[in-house]
Write a protein that binds this DNA or RNA. Structure first.
Lengths: 344, 344
DNA sequence: ATTAGCACTCAACGAGAGAGAGTGCTAACA
DNA sequence: TGTTAGCACTCTCTCTCGTTGAGTGCTAAT
């Protein structure tokens, strides 16, 4: 499967050229622009070989050649220079990220924005996946009338709250009691653990507050379920308008429609392995992605819970650069979240 | 300024035709399709008059005519039939809205989705504007170590929380004390009211907890400020791909870029008057909107706080229908939020 | 006042010519 | 035997130009 050194060099030159120009590459272009020390005729012969081997394709007889998915795969696996981003660029990214420290979701959406700015492609970021979050603390706070503010804190540090209206007025004292009991019974449980049995046990312990327990528990369950849901942030959708492959309105529409199917994209991202993933063209199972490449990576929060970030663009993308940026951004995001959440 | 009845009828026919076909309308088309009982030659004469009066435009000599902004304005003000939506459609909208009851922000974003679906245009929804929200309740809840969960409740019913790390460990008892004092001092204040003097007063009252007050207060301020921020939800961006006016990739790009400037859109929506607003073409001050029309409306929450919903599309839009849908949706949303927030 | 008729205008479409980029093949060369 | 110069060939792209057709404005008849 090893290609002769010269073939590799030619292929590399073609890929590089096509990535920047988006035009089929001819033998003369290679001979002139890239100093390989061989004539265009020789390159022509090699190109014919490379086409036979499946690395190149010809849109039509009298056109130059374009790389196939197979060629990009070879490029990414063997020919790419691990393009370390310049320190200056690193600083810029870092500073942009730090610029908007706020709530977690704000950081995430801002990450998507920066990622799309630096790759000039469409960025996707998935919020952390709190699978099987355990309950850490429930607090009931009396408000006016029969209203109660309920605050649910999870081990992962996420807090949610809601205002409930009870069927009866409850003294602050009694509310405290119920609160204590609930904490005792529910601490450490996940949504899956909270069976009818558990609720039954609670009711037995405090028979006089049955109706209150019945009002509060669904809210607790919903909260746990809501937190397990991941959110998808997209940015830089309009970047594709600058790419010649999307100058056809139908292509642009199809691309946007695909990204509109958020559930599909979520699944796509969730099904990637840890670390940096590169999926090129037809390697994607989904039909509308066959002309796209995906670069995804995993960031961490609390060691356990993870989120995904990724970039999507045409197979003709600047892999060196984009992979570096995605890689650097995940590292940075992980670090940022660590500082942010685990201050002591 | 009154146009002869016949001129009005012809103009109406031209507008209706152009709205559905997007093609310049010729005199013969009007004579054939719309039963006005006059010949195409007569219509031709009238059309020449209408052009002179500024209601029609000719892309080029041998083409039909298209309505001007002035014509649409006349249409909207005088010729439109208040197209009551069919009960069936009302039911569908109502059911779709009820389908996703959840948190406020969820309802809002879902509203945007439905609005874009029913208008086949791009929908914009602004979350309620809690201007000058007053503080109602602050609660400090001890967590492990030096961490404290702080919950801020506003009069408008919004709740926010965050986890803070204090500089020292505080007993539950002391935390309670600080909490009580803060409630007493801050209740009913807005972010503008909380001056250095107020904070100074708090510090004087409880000198031993100065550093704690200093840690907590910025968070309270931030919370108040954050809540005052409105959020913009867009949906149906890809709908414009189905409109012939955006088959040109540059037009589509410009449109999307404009909607990408969220701050601009927010301002645009905030600057509308109460009730239904219609802005046609050049009536819009913003340059990129000169070929678009905007239909916006106001929904209410708690009587006072308000949010905006709107639709944006080409000046050639089905005003009758879209205005009805926007109008119906605001009414519905206001009602839905009333049921949702003020249950007792 | 309305309408039929007609000359005129102009975008849109399609055919055809020419240019240009690129190829594959052949023959000469080191 | 591998490399290269040369050349005929292919095919897209662009430009031009005539044709078509929709639509107009004007005039003269009703």
């Amino acid at each position: 499967m090893d290609l002769a050194d010269r073939k590799l060099k030619i292929l590399q030159a073609i890929i590089r050229d096509f990535i920047t120009t988006a035009e089929p590459v001819g033998s003369r272009t290679i001979a002139k622009k890239y100093d390989l020390g061989i004539s265009s005729a020789t390159i022509r012969n090699e190109m014919a070989d490379l086409e036979e081997l499946g690395y190149l394709q010809q849109p039509h007889t009298s056109a130059g050649r374009i790389p196939s998915d197979k060629a990009y795969r070879l490029y990414v696996d063997q020919m790419m220079i691990a393009n370390k981003i310049a320190q200056i660029e690193k600083n810029i990214i870092q500073n942009s990220l730090l610029e908007k420290i706020g709530e977690l979701e704000q950081i995430i959406s801002h990450t998507a924005k920066i990622l799309s700015q630096f790759t000039k492609l469409t960025a996707m970021v998935l919020s952390p996946q709190y699978r099987h979050s355990r309950l850490k603390h429930i607090q009931l706070i009396p408000m006016e009338g029969r209203r109660v503010l309920i605050v649910v804190v999870l081990e992962s540090g996420v807090v949610k709250n809601a205002i409930l209206r009870l069927n009866e007025v409850l003294s602050e004292e009694n509310l405290e009691k119920v609160s204590k009991m609930m904490n005792h019974r529910l601490q450490g449980l996940t949504v899956a653990d909270i069976s009818a049995g558990v609720i039954h046990g609670m009711k037995n312990e405090m028979q006089m507050f049955n109706s209150i327990i019945e009002t509060i528990m669904p809210m607790v369950m919903t909260t746990l379920e809501e937190i397990e849901e991941v959110h998808l942030y997209l940015d830089g959708l309009i970047n594709i308008f600058n790419l010649p492959e999307y100058h056809d309105i139908n292509k642009a529409r199809d691309f946007m429609s695909m990204l509109d199917q958020k559930e599909l994209i979520k699944e796509l991202l969730l099904n990637t392995k840890d670390g940096v993933n590169i999926t090129i063209g037809k390697e994607n199972k989904h039909e509308n992605l066959q002309e796209c490449s995906l670069i995804t990576a995993t960031y961490k929060l609390h060691g356990k819970t993870v989120g995904k970030i990724g970039v999507i663009g045409p197979t003709r993308m600047d892999y060196d650069n984009i992979i570096s940026v995605v890689d650097f951004m995940t590292g940075n995001l992980t670090k940022l979240l660590k500082d942010y959440k685990e201050e002591d």
